[in-house]
């Protein structure tokens, strides 16, 4: 792995810049996403900074069941993000469509539109759950980097203690797609 790639991997591990997009949520999860950045929870201590532009972001946080009006825009936003990029679906609606699944103007979960790396359940998601999801995603990034570097992924001892409210992480298409 050349130096640039190493630097990018280090940067996304140590300071993931996130962008938040509301794809038709009820506002509950959106507030909790912002809440995770405020003093009580302070996700910024993990190096997370909320960005305004998709071109500056590593991680896309999507809340809400994807409405038909938003669907194409969400793809555009995803395409504007530089690689390697990761998507977190936050909340029951973003995971599966939730209570709005089947409504005429709802496409369903985020994975009906763009690939998703982490699913965070809850209605509304609690900030603790979101923090757990972000830290797990970061571990996943690190494991990928290590694997690409020819090293073994960290063993069970190296894993941090899981947070009380666990977030579901899927590995369905993670490693290859973000190809490093």
């Amino acid at each position: 792995m050349d130096l640039i790639k190493k630097a990018i991997a280090w940067g996304s591990r140590k300071s993931p810049w996130v962008i938040h997009f509301n794809a038709g949520a009820c506002n509950g999860c959106d507030i909790e996403v912002v809440d995770a950045l405020t003093p009580r929870f302070d996700l910024e201590r993990a190096g997370v900074i909320k960005q305004g532009s998709p071109r500056h972001a590593d991680v896309l946080i999507v809340t809400g069941a994807v409405t038909l009006q938003v669907r194409d825009r969400l793809v555009q936003i995803y395409e504007q993000m530089p690689s390697p990029k990761f998507v977190i679906a936050v909340g029951a609606c973003a995971c599966s469509g939730g209570i709005f699944n089947g409504c005429y103007c709802v496409s369903g979960g985020v994975n009906t539109v763009i690939p998703v790396d982490a699913y965070v359940p809850g209605c509304a998601v609690r900030p603790e759950t979101l923090i757990a999801a972000v830290t797990k995603l970061l571990d996943k990034v690190e494991a990928q980097t290590a694997a690409a570097d020819g090293q073994l992924p960290p063993g069970p001892e190296a894993e941090p203690t899981p947070a009380p409210a666990a977030a579901a992480i899927t590995d369905q298409d993670g490693g290859e797609r973000h190809g490093k």
């Binding site: 509301n22 794809a23 038709g24 949520a25 009820c26 506002n27 509950g28 999860c29 959106d30 507030i31 809400g64 069941a65 409405t67 009006q69 938003v70 825009r73 209570i99 709005f100 089947g102 409504c103 005429y104 103007c105 709802v106 209605c123 509304a124």
Partner: peptide, 27 residues
């Protein structure tokens, strides 16, 4: 962009079920 069509959804659910949809009009 947030139009989900929940008024139609309410018409095909019972009064008790609708309560949960109405709760999620806005968080």
């Amino acid at each position: 962009y947030n139009h989900r069509g929940l008024e139609k959804a309410c018409e095909s659910r019972t009064y008790v079920q609708d309560l949960y949809i109405i709760e999620r009009v806005c968080g």
